[in-house]
Amino acid sequence: MGYERLAFEAADTNSDAVVSEGELARDAAVGFSSLDKDRSGTLTRSELGPHDPARFSLIDTNGDGVLTFSEVMRNKARAFAAGDKDGDGGLSLKEMVDAASADQGAVR
């Protein structure tokens, strides 16, 4: 669980062992702006690098071939809500890993 823990700790900015939706959004914004090389405000397939096309299509709800931050966050918020099993408004490391696995499994 090395990589997952690193990702979790990077997102958990207040170090309370729970990632809130605000922390998740901030973490997603960091990743999004890093990937958006042409500063267009959207992510193309080439900017994403190797990725799962089915997952891309799932997130790209308007089907325009690029991902906006809203599209990315809507997908993350959905996964967040599904992953928050204890309903405390945040994801523990285990909940986050389970949510990520379930999200990827949903595509397959």
């Binding site: 939706e21 901030r26 914004a29 960091v30 999004f32 931050f69 966050m73 918020a77």
Partner: peptide, 18 residues
């Protein structure tokens, strides 16, 4: 700096949408 501004903008945009 550009990335920080963009991150902030994206975060604020999402918060407004929510």
């Amino acid at each position: 700096v550009r990335r920080e501004i963009e991150e902030r903008r994206l975060f604020d945009q999402w918060q407004r949408e929510r």
